[in-house]
């Protein structure tokens, strides 16, 4: 699978999706002007990945902040990874938040209540 390697801008995150190297990460700020335009290629990549996954997947979210329109594509990614996890592939979500930003931590905890995949929490 061809890797995705997007450099973040002021309102879009850095995205690295590289199955060969086992790196899956969304980091920075996410409040694009057009959420669909930004996230559709990422969700398509995830669709292809879950059809041919690695034995183990550690997916990292490391966000400064994200807007309400980013919640749904994030949930979509997590639901797909949750299914992968339920099908016997080891999936872990590494949810990073800035030390003291309890809102971002809570957002991770709330996602974890919806999907069937283990989360770990760390500060940056």
């Amino acid at each position: 699978m061809e890797a995705i390697n997007l450099k973040g801008t002021y309102d879009t995150p850095d995205v690295v999706l590289n199955a060969e190297e086992g790196v899956f990460e969304i980091s920075g700020r996410s409040y694009p002007e057009d959420t669909a335009e930004f996230y559709i290629p990422i969700l398509e990549w995830i669709n292809n990945y879950v059809a041919q996954p690695n034995t183990e997947t550690k997916f990292t979210f490391r966000l400064d902040y994200f807007n309400s329109s980013s919640y749904k594509p994030f949930l979509d990614i997590l639901v797909k990874l949750g299914k992968l996890n339920s099908n016997g592939h080891a999936v872990t979500i590494q949810w990073y938040y800035k030390d003291g930003d309890w809102d971002i931590k809570e957002a991770g905890e709330e996602f974890s209540e919806i999907v069937d995949v283990p989360f770990t929490y760390e500060t940056f």
Binding site: T35, A36, Y39, I40, L43, N67, S68, S69, Y71, K72, P73, L75, D76, D103, E110, E113, I114
Partner: peptide, 29 residues
Amino acid sequence: KSFHKEVLVKTELFGKFGADLGLINVARK
């Protein structure tokens, strides 16, 4: 918190839900 979860789960991907979820988000902060 529970209303946010409810709206998040039931809304369509890239549908016109932004204003609803946005207002709940702001209310929580």
